[in-house]
């Protein structure tokens, strides 16, 4: 029996082999950041017991301010609703984090679900990244500040988006990833699309050193 191999939702596009360092040759740069851990966390953001237990297990305060996110060395926590968060973690860490959360939250109303197979992440940068987002979404991306997250539309699908460095991260559902990638490619057509080599230390988006993704 062959060793288990993971395949990301955009595997068939062969993006990894096309990736190159970001430069001024294209107006838009994008790539899939595969195999990240995604945990859906549910609980009552007004319940102090829940918030403190979750914060302890995560190692950072659970963001309870609407549409904000919190970042530590190992995780990024996105506020999705008053009772829902998405925890983005390094590859392979989701399982252990789930166990830690379940243990910490025992006795408190909660739900912890490993949803790592259900999502993937797309990096979008370059001088025309904002133009592309205007083409694909009704949300006012010009108003999206660092540290904030927007759940909105992308074409006829949906997305969780936030800023990272000088670019954007788009978390999308696995089964829609093919459609969304094609949609982004078509929207980027006027500006030229480069497949970006996203630095390894920046995969989860937890690194404090931001990469200059808006070259040129």
């Amino acid at each position: 029996m062959s060793e288990p191999v993971m395949r990301s939702p955009l595997h068939s596009f062969g993006l990894a082999s096309q990736a190159k360092p970001i430069d001024g040759s294209s107006g838009v740069w994008a790539n899939e950041i595969p195999h990240i851990g995604y945990i859906s966390l549910r609980g009552d953001g007004r319940d102090q017991a829940f918030v403190s237990a979750a914060s302890k297990a995560l190692g950072i305060p659970l963001p309870i301010e609407p549409c904000t996110l919190a970042t530590s060395e190992s995780v990024k926590v996105l506020w999705l609703s008053p009772d829902e968060w998405m925890i983005v973690s390094a590859p392979g860490q989701a399982n252990a984090l789930c166990s830690r959360l379940e243990l910490a939250l025992a006795g408190v109303r909660n739900q912890v679900v490993d949803n790592s197979g259900g999502y993937t992440q797309i990096f979008l940068g370059g001088t025309h990244a904002l133009d592309v987002l205007r083409h694909v979404s009704v949300y006012d991306f010009e108003s999206l500040q660092p540290g904030r997250v927007a759940g909105t539309t992308l074409g006829k699908s949906s997305v969780y988006a936030f800023r990272q460095g000088n670019g954007y991260r788009l978390i999308v559902r696995r089964s829609f990833a093919d459609y969304i990638w094609r949609y982004l490619v078509r929207a980027a057509n006027p500006y030229g699309l480069g497949i970006a080599d996203v630095p390894v230390d920046n995969l989860v988006g937890t690194s404090t050193a931001s990469v200059n993704v808006a070259a040129g």
């Binding site: 068939s12 083409h135 093919d178």
Partner: peptide, 18 residues
């Protein structure tokens, strides 16, 4: 607009499609 041709409607695929 872009709601045409190959991006007319979302086309969803399973992980086993290939």
């Amino acid at each position: 607009g872009l709601h045409a041709d190959e991006t007319f409607e979302p086309r969803r695929y399973s992980a086993m499609h290939a």
